[in-house]
Design a protein around this nucleic acid. Structure first.
Length: 496
RNA sequence: GGCCCCAUCGUCUAGCGGUUAGGACACCGGCCUCUCACGCCGGUAACAGGGGUUCGAGUCCCCUUGGGGUCACCA
C-alpha cells in the first residue's frame, strides 16, 4: 500500500542545491533524465542551483566523447546547469577525476578520527575468504569481507593499499526519503566498504559523499537502484559530523515488458539524442517524462513553466513505470501543434535538408504551410514529410505508391481536366477562390467531392494524404499546380 | 538466498475510511469530412489473494503471492 511521503519542510532560508551526476557511458539514459528533470524543476521552482557533475572515476568507460554527449543532451533538452562543465562554479572542478586530492584529504580525516583504515589485503586474500564463506554457508550470495586490518595500524603506507570505512556492525541506518518515506537498513548487512582504491581514485559511495558534502548539496536525487547505497553515505556524513542532506529516490523507468530500460530494450530509444534525431521536441519528451512517475491530479499536458510551478515530491509515485511510446507520441504531438509556425519552420529545416529539400526557415511558403501540416504530424520528421512535396521540382512529383497511383487512370482524367481548367482561370489563386467553382461543378455533375479530390491530391502532391484540397492547391501555387496537373493528366491517360 | 523497495483498468495514474472507483494513452463505436489528421461525443476495461481493525476498507495493520533493486578495488 502506498504511504504518503513526507512533505518537504526544510527551512526556506536554506537554499536548494541539487545535482545531476551522470557517468559518461556514451549516451545519456532517458530514465536518468527524468531524475535530472525533477531535480532541475525543483531548483528552478525554488530559485536554487542545479549542479552538473561528471562521475568519471571508471576510467575504462569515460571518454571525452561520452562527456560531450551528456552535455549536448542536456543542452538539447534545455536543462541548463548553474555549475558544472564549461560554466565552472565555486566548487570546481566538476569532474571527479580532477578532485583526487580532495578525496584523499577526506579519507585522511576519516583515518585520523578512527572511522576508516588502510587495508593491505590482497585480491587473493579476499578471494580465499570468499571461497571459505561459500563452502561454509553453502551459498555464494551475501559474502562480506572482514578485513584483518580493521583494528591494525602496523601496515606500511608506502605499499599499495586501499582505504576502507570502519562500518558499524550494530543498529540500523535509516532516513526519511522524499519519495519512499522512512527507509532503514540493518548495519550488520554492511561491510567495510572501500573508500579509496589502490589507484587513488574513490569508489562511487565515497566520491559521491565527498562531492555532495563539499558542493553543499541539500537534496540528493537518484534512481531507486541507489537506495541500498544510501546507508553507506549516511554513515559517512555521520562519521565526519556533517549535516545529512535529504534524499529522494526515484523508481526505475522500465521497458514494455517491465524490465529496467536499457540499450537492449526492444523498440525503445534509451538515448536522449535518439529523440532529438527522431524529430521530437524537448517540450514533448520532458512533459511525457515528467508525467511518467509524477502526477498533479488529472492534469496531463504541461508547459515547462507549468511543470516548474506545479512539480513537487509528494506527487512522485513509488512504482516503476513502463515506457509507453504511444502516449509519448500523443503528448509530443500536442506540443508540436502548440508551437508557433515560425518556430516550427526553423526547427523543421534540418529535417527537410536531410531529405534533400533546401529551403530557408523564413521562406513564406514554408511558414504558411506549417499550420495545416502540423495538425497531421507528431514529430518534426512527420512535418518534413508533409512539407516535402511543396518544395520539389514539379517533375519529381509522382504517386508515392501503388495506392496513390491508382487514382491516376483514364476514368479520373476528366476530373483532372476540369480542375486544371479552374486552376488556370482562378485569380487570385486562393483556397476560397478555388473552392466555389470546383464545388459547384461537382454538385452539378452529381459527383462526390472525394472522387474528384483524391486524383487531384495525388496529382499535386504525389500522396493520398494532405491538408484540405483547396488549401493544398493554394500552397503548391498556381504555376506548379498547372504543371503537376498536366503531368498527372498524361499519366492518367496512359494508365491501364 | 540475505537485506531493501513496490503492488488501482493493457499502460501512466487520481484516490489520503463512506466515490456509480475519476482522468489520460491505447482499443472499439459515432460525429465532423474531399483524404489523412486534429477536434468532439460515447463505450469496453482495474482495487493480486487471505486474514484482521472498524458501524464502514482501494484507503490502516499482518501474512501470502507476484514484481523490482542490491549484495565489487562499477556507477
Amino acid at each position: 500500500m502506498r504511504k504518503r511521503a513526507p512533505t518537504f519542510n526544510r527551512s526556506p532560508i536554506m537554499s536548494v542545491r541539487v545535482r545531476f551526476a551522470p557517468s559518461p557511458t556514451g549516451y545519456l539514459h532517458i530514465g536518468g533524465v527524468r531524475t535530472a528533470l525533477y531535480s532541475w524543476l525543483w531548483a528552478r521552482k525554488h530559485g536554487g542551483e542545479f549542479v552538473l557533475r561528471i562521475e568519471d572515476t571508471d576510467a575504462a568507460r569515460s571518454t571525452q566523447e561520452a562527456v560531450d554527449v551528456i552535455l549536448e543532451s542536456m543542452r538539447w533538452l534545455g536543462l541548463d546547469w548553474d555549475e558544472g562543465p564549461e560554466v565552472g562554479g565555486p566548487h570546481a572542478p566538476y569532474f571527479q577525476t580532477e578532485r583526487e586530492a580532495l578525496y584523499a584529504e577526506w579519507a585522511e580525516k576519516l583515518i585520523a578520527s578512527g572511522h576508516a583504515y588502510r587495508c593491505w589485503a590482497t585480491k587473493e586474500e579476499i578471494q580465499a575468504q570468499r571461497e571459505a564463506y561459500e563452502q561454509g554457508r553453502g551459498g555464494k550470495k551475501g559474502f562480506k569481507f572482514r578485513s584483518p586490518w580493521r583494528d591494525r595500524t602496523d601496515g606500511d603506507p608506502s605499499q599499495p593499499h586501499v582505504v576502507r570505512f570502519k562500518a558499524p556492525r550494530e543498529g540500523k541506518t535509516g532516513w526519511t526519503d522524499l519519495v519512499y518515506g522512512d527507509v532503514a537498513y540493518p548495519n550488520k548487512e554492511q561491510q567495510d566498504f572501500v573508500l579509496i582504491r589502490e589507484n587513488g581514485l574513490p569508489l562511487y559511495n565515497f566520491g559521491c559523499f565527498v562531492d555532495d558534502l563539499t558542493m553543499g548539496i541539500t537534496l540528493v536525487t537518484r534512481g531507486d537502484d541507489h537506495l541500498v547505497n544510501t546507508p553507506m553515505q549516511l554513515m559517512l556524513y555521520d562519521a565526519v559530523g556533517a549535516e545529512r542532506p535529504q534524499f529522494a529516490h526515484l523508481p526505475m523507468v522500465l521497458d514494455a515488458s517491465g524490465k529496467k530500460l536499457s540499450k537492449r530494450s526492444p523498440g525503445v530509444g534509451v538515448a536522449v539524442l535518439d529523440y532529438r534525431d527522431g524529430g521530437y521536441l524537448p517540450a514533448g519528451v520532458l512533459n511525457y517524462l515528467a508525467r511518467l512517475g509524477w502526477s498533479h491530479g488529472d492534469e496531463e499536458l504541461f508547459t515547462l513553466e507549468e511543470l516548474i510551478a506545479k512539480f513537487d515530491w509528494k506527487g512522485v509515485g513509488k512504482t516503476g513505470s513502463r515506457w509507453d511510446k504511444k502516449k509519448l507520441a500523443h503528448v509530443q504531438g500536442h506540443h508540436l501543434r502548440s508551437q508557433d509556425d515560425a518556430t516550427l519552420a526553423k526547427l523543421v529545416t534540418p529535417f527537410l535538408a536531410e531529405r534533400g529539400v533546401e529551403v530557408a526557415a523564413d521562406d513564406a511558403r514554408l511558414v504558411n504551410a506549417i499550420a495545416p501540416v502540423k495538425l497531421r504530424a507528431t514529430t518534426l520528421i512527420d512535418l518534413a514529410e508533409g512539407l516535402d512535396y511543396l518544395f520539389r521540382p514539379d517533375a519529381e512529383i509522382a504517386p508515392e505508391n501503388d495506392k496513390a497511383a491508382k487514382h491516376l487512370k483514364p476514368a479520373t482524367a476528366p476530373y483532372l481536366e476540369k480542375v486544371l481548367e479552374v486552376v488556370r482561370a482562378t485569380e487570385p489563386f486562393t483556397a476560397e477562390a478555388l473552392a466555389g467553382p470546383i464545388e459547384s461543378w461537382v454538385e452539378a455533375e452529381e459527383l462526390k467531392m472525394g472522387k474528384v479530390a483524391q486524383p487531384v491530391r495525388v496529382a499535386i502532391t504525389g500522396r493520398t494524404r494532405s491538408p484540405g484540397l483547396f488549401e493544398t492547391l493554394e500552397l503548391v501555387g498556381k504555376e506548379a499546380s498547372i504543371a503537376r496537373l498536366e503531368q498527372a493528366l498524361e499519366r492518367a491517360r496512359a494508365a491501364e
